[in-house]
Simulated scan of single mutants.
Amino acid sequence: MKAVEIGAWFASASGMYWFASRVMDRNAGLVAGVAYLLAPYHVVDLYVRGAMPEFLAFVFPPFVLWAIYQIFSTRRAFYVPLAALAYGGMILTHVQMTVLFSPVILGYILVLWWSDRRQTADDRWQTADDRRQTADDRWQTADDRRQTTELSNHFITLSLRRSIGSFLFRSILALAWGVAIAAVFFLPVVAEQKHLTNDPLIGGFFNFRLHFLNPSQLLSPFWGYGYAGINGNVFVCIS
């Protein structure tokens, strides 16, 4: 168990280091890795709650983001199964973490797609200007020049759309593949739903109403790590 904890601890930091280093530089990667390693909630999961599934799930988000960025920057299909394995591993390790983090993944994909779209639009017009200049040099008649420019713009637009579409398709494919990997877990749950009861999972400690903080608790020096109370009306202090 100790070996698993240590391995997960440093794997999560390594994943964040690789991701931030790839997007920015090694110094930023080092800062991001240490910050992710020592994030309070990350530490609490291990030393206070002993929530091993959630603690282990922290390993996967940086690798998902890293693989998505690699798909974006290299356009290589090699990184699609890596993203799928990381996403599938997160689903199998901790479903709640997946529910919380999946919108971040989708948002990151959209940000990359939008930035790529703006960049390719600038490149398209710059290339079109270059082609127009070439057409002016090579052709004398207005008809030939217009035809050359239109053909150039057409093929450039098709090429760039295919490039952007490839990134979106491969990113979504990776997530879908990750869900398929995790099907070994959730398909039996769905199939056997009629034989299960949800009461132990939504009552008692797992009642979500017990975990909403009252604004005063955010500033209280006495509230420890415990129930936040039902709508802030119940105050529990654990020393």
Score class of each variant (00 low, 15 high):
K2D: 07
G7V: 03
W9E: 01
W9D: 04
F10N: 03
A11N: 02
A11S: 15
G15H: 03
W18A: 15
R22H: 12
V23A: 10
L30R: 13
L37N: 07
V44G: 02
M52C: 02
M52P: 02
E54L: 12
F63H: 03
W66I: 04
Y69R: 07
T74P: 06
A83M: 14
A84P: 04
A86C: 08
Y87R: 04
G88E: 06
M90N: 03
T98M: 10
V99T: 12
L100C: 04
I109E: 01
L110Y: 03
V111N: 00
W113L: 08
R117A: 06
R118F: 00
D123Y: 04
R124Q: 05
Q126E: 05
Q126L: 11
Q126M: 09
A128G: 10
D129R: 15
D130P: 00
D137G: 14
W139M: 14
T141H: 06
D143H: 08
R145C: 00
R146M: 09
Q147Y: 02
T148K: 00
T149Y: 04
L151H: 10
F155P: 03
S159W: 03
I164H: 02
I164Y: 00
S166T: 07
L168M: 11
A174I: 06
L175I: 12
A176L: 15
G178F: 09
A180N: 11
A182F: 11
A183N: 13
A183M: 13
L187T: 11
V189M: 13
A191G: 02
I202E: 10
G203A: 03
F206D: 06
F212C: 09
L213E: 14
P215M: 04
S216D: 13
L218T: 04
L219A: 13
S220T: 10
F222H: 13
Y227I: 14
Y227A: 11
N233Q: 15
V236W: 01
C237Q: 02
